[in-house]
């Protein structure tokens, strides 16, 4: 067993963690987005708050959420570990470099993009998850549901908050565009016929999912401020 454990002391093993946790977070995004889309429904208060309750109480979802937390933490830790190793691998940098000729900007900037997503995540969790768990979210009238919906709508009615969201989702999009196909590569799944398909799906995913996420606050902002 020893060597199976020491897999994580080698580059490929560490990358495996990045790929697996990243892959899991991709799946998480789908679930999260599906729930959030409730906000597009007119008079979504009840539906959204019920969804919130389901997400916080269902045992299966609980397990998933813990997996998500673990994934995020591992993804960040190993990003730092690998990132340090990678920086150390080139102690003297080129004084003149033109990397754009051979690789894409986002592939090279995964740490920066990841950091953007991480900062966003902290803001996001503080605004909603923390408030829901430890803060004073009022109860929805006539129900036993916490009224997160009102908190969300209030937050999304502020223009600067919406901008943070949109920018963060742009960062996520670039992160995903590289990360999606990269996870397959790291898992050893590269095939003449399938890899181009995976790359296309990855790109569609990387555009569609963050775009929809970003659309929600924009939509709320526009409707709340009677622009739409």
């Amino acid at each position: 067993m020893a060597t199976v454990v020491n897999i994580f002391s080698h580059t490929i093993g560490r990358k495996l963690i990045m790929a697996l946790t990243g892959g899991f977070l991709i799946i998480f995004l789908i679930g999260h987005l599906a729930g959030n889309l409730v906000l597009f429904v007119e008079d979504s208060q009840l539906a959204f708050n019920e969804y919130t309750k389901f997400m916080t109480t269902n045992p299966f979802v609980k397990v998933l959420s813990y997996l998500t937390y673990i994934s995020i933490i591992l993804h960040v830790i190993y990003a730092i570990v690998l990132g340090r190793m990678n920086t150390q691998a080139r102690p003297v940098r080129y004084s003149y470099n033109k990397p754009a000729q051979s690789s894409t900007w986002n592939a090279r900037s995964m740490t920066l993009l990841g950091l953007i997503v991480l900062v966003f995540l902290i803001i996001h969790l503080k605004s909603f998850w923390f408030e829901l768990k430890f803060g004073a979210v009022p109860m929805m009238e006539g129900t036993d549901l916490k009224d997160l919906h009102t908190v969300v709508i209030a937050a999304f009615s502020q223009w600067w908050y919406v901008i943070i969201y949109v920018l963060a989702m742009a960062g996520l999009a670039y992160h995903l565009d590289h990360g999606f196909q990269s996870a397959f590569q790291t898992l050893g799944l590269n095939h003449k016929a399938y890899t181009p398909v995976i790359k296309s799906i990855g790109r569609i995913f990387a555009i569609a999912v963050p775009a929809l996420f970003a659309l929600i606050p924009v939509y709320v902002y526009l409707t709340q401020n009677n622009i739409l």
Binding site: H10, K15, Q88, S103, S182
Partner: peptide
């Protein structure tokens, strides 16, 4: 792979450069 790591090369982030 073990030797590669020992030599101090970085890890692959699939930039394909």
């Amino acid at each position: 792979v073990a030797q590669m790591d020992e030599e101090g090369f970085g890890s692959c982030t699939n930039t394909y450069a």
